[in-house]
Design a protein around this nucleic acid. Structure first.
Lengths: 342, 342
DNA sequence: CCCAAAATTCAAAGCGCTTTGGATTTCCTT
DNA sequence: AAGGAAATCCAAAGCGCTTTGAATTTTGGG
């Protein structure tokens, strides 16, 4: 059943039916109702490909999923996607997900845009001097960056959380509690948020005359295993850290295990603060020793980004182009005064 | 730059250029090379919408992501998606992901198919007597089911793991070790795999004259928290279970915590076997007490499904229509003889 | 009642690509 | 050198929808 058949059935022109369907004003209310009824009865669905070809719009937003054989998947991606989905489903939008090797994201983005399959692009996993931003600015396609790059003009639409501030606050709290030896379990070193978090931490430490030693820093995918192994390694150092910052509760999971396996008590012998993306799968308050965290819902970010993207495509409303969300520092039992300071 | 312009530039007809691009034989090798060169220089990209409209093919596979505001996201979804992606990226396919409230999956599937945006559909989160299968059979679109429904004719293409067998084996092992009181931490009760796993477990127990008590069964989303709370509850029973089966390492994570919090030793006081989807984020061998598991890589399943789907669309090769993968029972330290049986 | 303005409806022209059916050239064979 | 097959290439017809510009019908004021 296509438009032509439907219009013949109704004894109307394609034009009128099309207009009735798309809410144009110049169609008689009664006629419109007839059309709508016919649609319901026949189950007519416009062919999206044709619609797209005619309008140039696609009804979908594109994203590049960094993945490849042998590359670990990122838990956080799914949660973010769920957020995008919550919002997208309300407007009958869908996503076009283009998998890409992490090192070919620029090319993949370009292809995705050129494919005409998407109305807007979502960019994430920002790197330092990320070339995708400059590229997107040359195209006229709406886009939003989740996160921010570093070292490029800051004049693109983004939604980011205050990573620097979050880790500054966290590190400061621990420094104030008297800790002197710090460790950081961070995300991949090429990602902007990792860089910012480290920077925030280093700044706070500097204000207390402290430094972050290179051998107390991990940069890796955020899995339980990496957290465990790194923490294990840190604890074997001659002056092991007593204060640890984690970029994810998943890393924290492994770290906590290493800590208790070493016979140390979290919140007593060693303090830990993790960044909490509010993954339903793993809540910091449910850890054996509830975790102090810097919190910001990844899912909420996804919802917001979808909202902005869709608004941009549909010219609905003008939402702010740049948002920087604060994180909440939530103190639980995993942080306590340093031993020596007691 | 479109086909018309490109063909004018080359002094050829659109037909010839199109054929050169799509590998048809009736075009001179030299001419083809000229076309290819021109494409490289101009950066011409065919408009997918037009291509789609003309061919009816979309170059993408559709999937429905069950999500909604307030509904927890499923960690396993991301890992599976990564698998799909690994394979899809090799053939320049992408996904169209349609978010849907879990209760409206049938309608969403139908819409997705009707939209003409996808060449094939992937179905997951199968339920008992799942209506999507019958629906898909009436349409002519290729599809693959991840998992199997229950109580419907078994004549559709699927890839499933032997859930019944996995949990049968696991339960039998524990029964043989002398355990008499069992518990099950399972996925949502309406999902087919949950039902099968329970069935396999119940069968093994029956063979040993044992039963699975209703108050020792949890059906829920697979999160750490649910695992923790349920286990906590189980341990308060008058005759607490000494043998636990978990549908996911994520549930196991919470369960293990509840167990050690109760002062019990895993593998000694209580035995636990979890199903392991091989999530990079959470490996059973890294648990404080390494977990005995039934293992089957979710990502591998994703890869395989994408492979079959794409082969189906492109008529590449004929792959088996139904596959049932065995799971590996891997014994680690979380299982031991029952106390009383020592 | 008449006529201009407003309200509806329509025919037809794309959107950019694939593909059918033919036309034109080239290549062999006899 | 003629005839037919093979190799190339092309014009034009869609694919199903939106949208422009115009035609037709209604409406309302004088």
């Amino acid at each position: 059943m296509n438009l032509k058949q439907l219009s013949q059935l109704l004894g109307l022109s394609q034009t009128t039916v099309s207009r009735a369907l798309n809410g144009y004003p110049e169609v008689n209310a009664e006629t419109r109702q007839r059309v709508l009824d016919a649609v319901r009865e026949t189950g007519y669905r416009p062919n999206r490909a044709a619609q797209r070809l005619a309008t140039g719009r696609a009804g979908s937003i594109g994203l590049v999923m960094p993945t490849a054989d042998g590359i670990e998947s990122d838990v956080h991606f799914g949660e973010f996607l769920a957020g995008l989905g919550d919002e997208a489903v309300k407007h009958d939008f869908h996503f076009v997900i283009n998998p890409s090797h992490p090192d070919e994201e620029v090319a993949t983005c370009r292809r995705l845009v050129a494919s005409g399959n998407v109305d807007a692009l979502f960019l994430a996993y920002m790197r330092e001097k990320d070339p995708r931003i400059a590229m997107m600015k040359t195209l006229k396609m709406p886009f939003i960056v989740h996160g921010r790059s570093i070292g490029v003009p800051n004049d693109y639409p983004f939604l980011d959380i205050d990573n620097t501030g979050a880790f500054y606050d966290a590190a400061r709290l621990l420094a104030q509690l008297g800790h002197r030896h710090f460790a950081l379990l961070n995300g991949p070193d090429y990602l902007a948020y990792s860089i910012r978090r480290k920077k925030g931490m280093v700044r706070a430490l500097a204000e207390h005359g402290l430094v972050l030693r290179d051998d107390c820093v991990l940069h890796s995918q955020m899995t339980d295993e990496h957290g465990f192994r790194a923490m294990e390694r840190f604890l074997k150092l001659e002056a092991p850290p007593t204060a640890v910052l984690c970029s994810s509760t998943v890393l924290a999971l492994g770290a906590v295990r290493a800590i208790s396996q070493a016979g140390l008590k979290l919140g007593v012998d060693i303090s830990l603060i993790a960044h909490d993306d509010v993954l339903p799968m793993l809540k910091p308050e449910n850890f054996m020793v509830p975790l102090t965290t810097t919190r910001s819902s990844l899912r909420a970010a996804g919802q917001r980004i979808a909202r902005r993207l869709i608004a941009g495509i549909l010219d609905l409303e003008t939402l702010p182009q740049q948002e920087l969300w604060r994180t909440d520092l939530i103190v639980r039992a995993s942080t306590g005064p340093a031993r020596a300071a007691r």
